[in-house]
Every structure is written in structure tokens, then in C-alpha cells.
């Protein structure tokens, strides 16, 4: 009886060694290298943030790295702060100056409420297309960084009727900004 127990212990140790340490499963050296890279990726404490910004009548995208967070709202906050500050945006002429992000609130209806300072309205001086593109950039920046059904903009924590007098801010943005814009090109004179 006293002999059987150490033998059993030895056998189980041998089986464990075979399955967990010795067995190679045919993996090549390069596969080991890839898995090491993936490990580094996990260890790398940065995450990609996508920012959509208006330029003339188009929307352009930049991607920046930010400190890794598992809170999608924090990533969105970084993205929107970056959009309004415009530090990494090549051409920020379509973005009103001195806009501050005051807060983000995620509703039970999956609508993200984006609370911004009144400079967004005060310093906006564009035409109808510029206003639509700015609203679209806020919407796209949010939905590409977190899971949100819709986006609603608040000015100084209150509901505003419009940003630049052409489109409603009273309602969430999706219905306005996701409609395809039909442009019939430039009709040249002469």
C-alpha cells in the first residue's frame, strides 16, 4: 500500500509533464514568435482611438493611440476631446475653437449624450454643409469608439434647437447624419 501511493504520484507527474511541458503539438518556431508578438500586444497598454473630422464637404479619419482602457466611454471621451481640441487634426478650420467636452452620459436607450460647452454654437460660422459635416463627425467619432445606438448633443448641459441654424439638435443625430447626401457636382459657368 505504501509503495503504490508513490508510484501513482510518479505516474501522474509524468502524465502532467507530457501534456503541459514536453508535448510540442508540431508548432514551428515562427508560430512561437507570432504568439509572442500577440503577447506583447496584450502587454502594450495602449488602445486605438478613431477620430472623424470634417474637411470641406468630406469626413476624414485619423487614428491615435491612447492609454488602454476597458471603458468604451473613456475611449470616446478621449476621441471627442481630441476632435474638439484638434491637436492631431491636420486641418481644423471646420471645427469651432475653444470647445470643451463637459461630459458624456450613456442612457438606458443606448443613446450617448454628448455635453459640450457653448463655444460649439457660438464659434460655429459655417454654411449648411459645414454644419451637417460637423454633426456627422461627432456622430461617427462616437459610434466608431463605442457601442451606441444614437448620439444627442447638449450645449452647456441643456437642449439646444440647432447648432448653426440649419439642422435640429433637439433630436438624436442618426436620422439627420446617416442620410446619403446627394450632390450634383459643380455646374460651371460660361
Amino acid at each position: 500500500m505504501f509503495i503504490i501511493a508513490p508510484i501513482l504520484l510518479l505516474c501522474s507527474a509524468a502524465v502532467a509533464y507530457y501534456f503541459f511541458i514536453w508535448r510540442d503539438d508540431g508548432e514551428t518556431l515562427s508560430q512561437h514568435i507570432v504568439s509572442r508578438k500577440e503577447q506583447e500586444k496584450v502587454v502594450d497598454n495602449s488602445t486605438q482611438i478613431h477620430i472623424y473630422y470634417p474637411e470641406d464637404s468630406e469626413l476624414k479619419k485619423i487614428t491615435i493611440k491612447s492609454k488602454q482602457t476597458f471603458d468604451a466611454i473613456k475611449s470616446t471621451e478621449v476621441a471627442l476631446t481630441e476632435l474638439f481640441s484638434g491637436k492631431n487634426i491636420p486641418n481644423r478650420s471646420s471645427i469651432p475653437a475653444d470647445v470643451k467636452l463637459l461630459g458624456l452620459y450613456y442612457g438606458v436607450d443606448k443613446i450617448l449624450y454628448v455635453d459640450v460647452s457653448s463655444e460649439l454654437k457660438k464659434n460655429f460660422q459655417g454654411d449648411a454643409t459645414a454644419e451637417l459635416m460637423l454633426l456627422k463627425s461627432i456622430f461617427e467619432t462616437v459610434i466608431n469608439n463605442m457601442e451606441a445606438e444614437d448620439v444627442k448633443v447638449l450645449i452647456d448641459s441643456a437642449e439646444a434647437e440647432s447648432l448653426g441654424g440649419h439642422f435640429y439638435l433637439r433630436y438624436p443625430l442618426r436620422r439627420t447624419v446617416t442620410q446619403e447626401i446627394v450632390t450634383d457636382g459643380l455646374h460651371k459657368a460660361g
Binding site: 449648411a128 440649419h166 439642422f167 446627394v182 450632390t183 459643380l186 460651371k188 459657368a189
Partner: peptide
Amino acid sequence: ITNGTKLNVVYAEIPLPL
């Protein structure tokens, strides 16, 4: 307008609430 002002015109359809 193109004939009268000799300036270019761009047409667009966007969801303007008014």
C-alpha cells in the same frame, strides 16, 4: 444664376428640417 452671374453652382440634397 449661372447665366446671370457667371459663377458656378453646386446642387445638393440634404435633410434640412425647414
